[in-house]
Amino acid sequence: MKIEFVLNYKPQIIEVDLARRLLDILREDFGLTGVKEGCGEGECGACVVLMDGKAVNSCLVPAGNIIGKSIVTLESFKKTERYKMIESCFLEAGSVQCGFCTPGIVMATESLLNENPNPTEKEIKEGLSGNLCRCTGYNMIFKGIHQAAERGKGLW
């Protein structure tokens, strides 16, 4: 079936099986490999993208649910000042190790700070509760997000 949606601010019309996962549409049909598959069941958050500004696990979103929606992936978000702030704070805080969870965590961070530009530590923890990281033990990611919020005042 033909569906219309907006991907990284560009309107798209695609022929797709409505049950096809958004994750596969992004990775396979559009080559957006910044979106990662870590579990395929909504537990790990490696495939997080923004749908109408909210973080969603793209492995759980069937094509039928994106009709008329706006999807933003890291490939587009990385061109923004907000991204640059997150990147520099993550680098400094040691928020990245193997990097497989990182794209999802960057998108979850954007979603969190967009809703709440001054999150408390507890709110940062809650904001990341859908993203698994097995390398860092999380504390150094919290620090990166906290720094981004502090230094990026006015960006969100």
């Binding site: 910044g34 680098l91 040691g94 990245v96 990097g99 990182t102 960057v106």
Partner: peptide, 21 residues
């Protein structure tokens, strides 16, 4: 004294290519 990881930027931006990519 810490330096920035050499592979950090490619991973944060999603440009790093894992085997599935």
């Amino acid at each position: 004294k810490p330096i920035q990881r050499v592979d950090g930027s490619a991973k944060i931006s999603g440009e790093a290519k894992y085997i599935g990519d």
